[in-house]
């Protein structure tokens, strides 16, 4: 990501932060005031993760650092895990997603999509079916073998 942290933060504020609070109200009847701490905590975790991703030279997607930061801060070793888990539990995981779909849809090259051949569309369906099904099979087998249910 080659955006400055300042631009990143403003963008986040006007996309996810704003809409997640609203979406959480629509989807889960959580009042706007009640949603604010949770959304701000998630955004701060995201901020820290993205900041770490900028510092660390390994080429791993920045969202991975975001998830790892969240994992660490909410794990039993974290002194602030309780408030983090409590406030973020008020935010449903689908609340921050609506704006993601929106931006992805706006960014989609629909013309390029329409110009694809029907053959490729069929192949795409098999690509996604194949990976989903075989991953499910492998997961099922290994969950059974390792007795992890």
């Amino acid at each position: 990501m080659n955006m400055s942290m300042k631009d990143w933060t403003i963008s986040l504020l006007f996309t996810s932060v704003l809409t997640a609070i609203i979406a959480n109200f629509f989807q889960n009847d959580v009042s706007i005031i009640e949603s604010i701490p949770g959304v701000l905590i998630l955004s701060s975790i995201a901020f820290i993760g993205i900041f770490i991703a900028k510092l660390v030279p390994f080429k791993i997607p920045a969202v991975v650092y975001v998830a790892l930061t969240g994992l660490l801060l909410a794990s039993p070793i974290s002194p602030i895990s309780d408030p983090i888990i409590y406030y973020t539990s008020l935010i449903s995981f689908t609340a921050p997603l609506t704006v993601v779909g929106t931006l992805a849809g706006i960014g989609l090259d629909f013309k390029a999509f329409m110009s694809q051949s029907w053959k490729m569309i069929i192949i795409a369906v098999f690509v996604f079916t194949g990976t989903f099904l075989l991953q499910a099979v492998f997961a099922q087998v290994f969950l059974t073998v390792t007795n992890a249910f």
Binding site: S11, T15, V39, I45, G49, I84, I85, F93, A104, G107
Partner: peptide
């Protein structure tokens, strides 16, 4: 549209943070 596709990665980060928190807990 171009800006929007760049922002997808920004906008999805709170969701990934949520996943991280769920995993940590």
């Amino acid at each position: 549209a171009k800006k929007a596709s760049q922002l997808v990665l920004v906008a999805i980060s709170p969701f990934m943070a949520k996943i991280g928190v769920m995993a940590g807990s």
